[in-house]
Nucleic acid binder design. Structure first.
Lengths: 328, 328
DNA sequence: CTGAAAGCGCTTACAG
DNA sequence: CTGAAAGCGCTTACAG
């Protein structure tokens, strides 16, 4: 910029004016400056600009895994809202590791992102308190923050699970298995709670062998499914706690001689083309991202809002697998 | 930092040393500084640091659509390599719009990303020349750069299409349809070229009605498929030019009374669970991202490499749909 | 309409 | 082991 000013024979501030399209420059000086810019290949350094202005026009997103299709639409929705506000998006995967989540979130804060959207891996977010106090707008998505009071946007996991399990019960099932994600994950326990509530509402007992929480690794999930589906009193239906569990469950059931009913939490591409189509409790991942990021920018715009818990509805999509009758 | 220095009764440089874990500070001063940091809730501003150091430890990724499952593993691979080098990832979607690609890429350069990974939407990247000259390491992925000489990492689209179409021909098909992406997209025309080469190799004619390029919008693709599958001499097999086309083709074929063979470019989740399983030409999207970002960091490390074109192999995965015999 | 000075928050190069 | 000065590339607040 100094070089441009020198070459154009003007002051620094005039170059700044031209670069930013500010008024108050004669067409003639503007032309001279522009020529110098072109000749020198000048490109404004936004980092320096940011240092002076305070705001970075950058939003950070910490999610579990960039390659998980479930987070694709959420990621995209955050990007769209950010873009509408002229902001860029930095994101990274925590891999469900609280320490990695922390490192990532703090690295983003050190870069002075204006706001942070976090899908929590850990259950203690007190490490973010100084950042929030320092003005980093922060919204949690998909799972609530741990040990701090902050905005959170969730799907109705409990209600969705109640609906799905009640649907199986209405179809005549009495022995229903539940396979979910790890117990420290909020959505996993909420969905399990929904399962238990639906069973209790129908006056049905829950055998301890019908419930399995753990990682979504295919080996773990298929072992759990096989265990529930064998023995003298096997389950006649499965409720899968999330998209990854559902996919593995579909594979296990496809290899079985008798039909077993299945309802999965989370919709996924091609669910309707399988035979039978897979009945799911769908949540709107894009809406999750959109609502969260809207909230973020409301805060950034200076809105003085108390921390809120926003819950989005889920919906049952019957496609066949959840309507199979019980077979022992 | 100034406040911390004042409170601890030391110089700025000493604070800087403590914050960065540099040697040459007495345990006692270090403790005093640390106390001041904690008391004041000091957080280092990496933007300022970056301004001084030159490098931002940030990589930019411009892709087509963050929510497209095909790009998930690629995105993740870029993130992993960047992380291994201590860098963060800024990314954005071009939505296949050259102007949006340009805006995004230039915005990333203005933030002074160290390097740029671009999945091109446009076919003229001369706008990046000044940036590359200024030292922004740039690697193109999935499609070559237009009108500039730069690194590019691709899958072997031509070879993959030849293999896939030859596979159908070996199964007895003589009338094979090709439905691909828009003709200005490099991979689309390469795959079409492979289709034509395989047909020519087998001495088979290609009827103009058997080839359709255009957007991947489901309406467009299903109309194209229906057209090829009707009339007095319908095709008996389809070659789908990419994952999105394949998915729509599967839907169309599922609604048809007679079996039609299908081979798709790109593998996708659950392809093996459909009935029949979908035969595909698989490319390794994660490898694409990994190889590209490795190359980026080689350049960043100062390697003086000439622009290279790196082509990764594809492989045929037979699952049933591509092995269906011709039925008229 | 234009520009010189100060400063954003840090690091570099140096001197003590 | 420690720190004062200069500077990274911009913008802000002012004066002319």
């Amino acid at each position: 910029m100094k070089d441009v000013a020198a070459r154009a024979g003007v002051g620094l501030k005039t170059v700044s004016r031209v670069v930013n399209g500010e008024p108050g420059v004669t067409p003639d000086t503007e032309r001279r400056v522009q020529e110098a810019i072109d000749a020198l290949g000048f490109r404004r350094n936004d980092s320096a600009r940011v240092l002076r202005k305070g705001r970075t026009a950058t939003v950070g997103l910490v999610l579990e895994d960039l390659s998980d299709p479930f987070y694709g639409p959420l990621n995209r929705a955050v990007e769209e809202v950010a873009r509408a506000h002229g902001a860029l998006l930095i994101n990274g995967s925590s891999d469900e590791d609280p320490e990695r989540e922390r490192e990532l979130a703090l690295a983003l804060c050190a870069r002075r992102v204006d706001g942070l959207v976090v899908i929590p891996a850990g259950d203690d977010h007190r490490y973010l308190e100084p950042e929030i106090r320092a003005g980093v707008a922060t919204v949690f998505v998909d799972r609530p923050a741990g040990r701090i009071d902050a905005d959170v946007v969730l799907s109705d996991s409990f209600g969705g699970a109640v609906t799905g399990v009640a649907h199986l019960i209405a179809g005549g099932h009495r022995r229903i298995g539940f396979i979910g994600d790890q117990p420290h994950i909020h959505t996993a326990t909420e969905r399990l709670r929904g399962y238990r509530a639906a069973m209790a509402d129908a006056g049905l007992p829950v055998d301890g062998a019908w419930v399995s929480l753990g990682t979504t690794a295919p080996e773990r999930v298929s072992a759990a499914a096989r265990a529930m589906l064998s023995g003298p009193e096997p389950v006649t239906a499965l409720f899968a706690g999330n998209n990854r569990v559902t996919v593995t469950a579909v594979r296990v059931l496809a290899s079985l001689p008798r039909p077993v009913a299945l309802v999965g939490f989370d919709d996924f591409e091609l669910a309707d083309l399988l035979n039978p189509g897979i009945t799911v409790i769908a949540q709107d991942a894009a809406a999750l991202g959109r609502v969260a990021t809207d909230r973020l920018f409301q805060r950034l715009a200076g809105a003085d809002l108390p921390p809120a818990r926003i819950e989005l509805p889920t919906r049952l999509i019957p496609r066949g697998s959840g309507e199979l009758p019980p077979v022992c």
